[in-house]
Design a protein around this nucleic acid. Sequence first.
DNA 1: TCAAAACAGAGAGCACTGCTCTTGACTTCC
DNA 2: GGAAGTCAAGAGCAGTGCTCTCTGTTTTGA
Lengths: 228, 228
Amino acid sequence: MVAPSLRARVRAGMIEEIKAVARRHLATDGADLSLRAVARDLGMASSAIYRYFPSRDDLLTALILEAYDALGAAVETADAAADHDDLRGRWLAASRAARAWALAHPAEYALLYGSPVPGYAAPDDTVAPAQRPPMTLLGILRDGMAAGRLTPPDEELPEPLRGDLNELSALTGVPLPPALMVRAMAGWTQLFGLISFELFGRINRALPHRDEYFDHQIALTADLVGLP
Amino acid sequence: MVAPSLRARVRAGMIEEIKAVARRHLATDGADLSLRAVARDLGMASSAIYRYFPSRDDLLTALILEAYDALGAAVETADAAADHDDLRGRWLAASRAARAWALAHPAEYALLYGSPVPGYAAPDDTVAPAQRPPMTLLGILRDGMAAGRLTPPDEELPEPLRGDLNELSALTGVPLPPALMVRAMAGWTQLFGLISFELFGRINRALPHRDEYFDHQIALTADLVGLP
DNA sequence: TCAAAACAGAGAGCACTGCTCTTGACTTCC
DNA sequence: GGAAGTCAAGAGCAGTGCTCTCTGTTTTGA
């Protein structure tokens, strides 16, 4: 293992600097990131950016990856910080962490969960980081099942749906009964919907107490998945 | 009342034609609508478009308004077509209609419920049409309360939230108990989340039976609001 | 009836975008 | 010390929204 050369280290620093400036632009100017504006801020020619990122989409992908990881880390940290046996507390903490991260980084959240950029297709590397938040929620339910403190609902699901959900269980590596799995998905969908509504300004102006509103809605999802 | 002049009629037709072409472009090329491309398709100079729409944003606003109205009409029609006394059936029908419209018009749905366009601020005219779908859902619950066939959950809500929800009731003109109101909002949020996840490709590939999945999730929201 | 006003469209031009290619300077390595 | 690799700049291409000016045409009203 050879120590990275000076040039390699300078290059790595440059990449970080570009991403930092790009993130700042994302926060102020929205998703339509301008390479030239980033280059201007860095005091370099726009063409020089291409030494570090093959295209604007690649820069966007890098930012998306970092955002997914930041959100995933925030959710996982909140989950880990809560009392491991307090399932409901973990569920609420993880959800609140997701919302807090989104409110602190609205542009990056929009990049992850807003309407897809027209010409842009997210590469496969983004799949794993993207699943960290929902996987955290699933993990809480897994722990609950393992501890015997979570009784799944005994609903009968139509066959094709049950098969899909079993497959999804296998795919995620978290074996949950279909009826519980579908409710976990409902909770994740609701969490995403709540944050998006609040962030994209679609929440009614008549709801100034947003923290309380969010907490109550999240409590409903905890009820839905059967957390005591 | 004078009959509109020939020129006025030609002008109205031209406006419709521009919107139609723009809608087509929206569907194929995504939300970053290009005025020049629309003009090219119409065989006219890009500057000529400005005779009909003061700016690109105004054209976008016109499309957004039409989309809201189309979605609202679809939801209301489905609700009206269902048996008026079958509250649950109406709830499911309205939800399915929203999803069907979104799947048929993905670009327009993204325009309405995706991440907000950076420089664009929706004018106030869009507020009323935007509330038609959720108002339809509220109407179903109102009818249920009036018919005495819907018993609201007796939950105790923290005071600031209860106040907000009462205000929201007054604002919408649909008087619902806060505990029911918050669940109605939950259902609407969930509907939006489900459609967005499916449309924006964030739904897991392991769920090929999307109709069944959606139906089941919607049934859960119907349970949540207490529809028998 | 006929001139004035309103309107429609075209074209040029401005400042901006992502991106490519070439050219020159600099650093690292053999 | 020369060759190879790297970095940055600059010019240029095709595209964008938008403004302004100029030319026709249509409508209007005295």
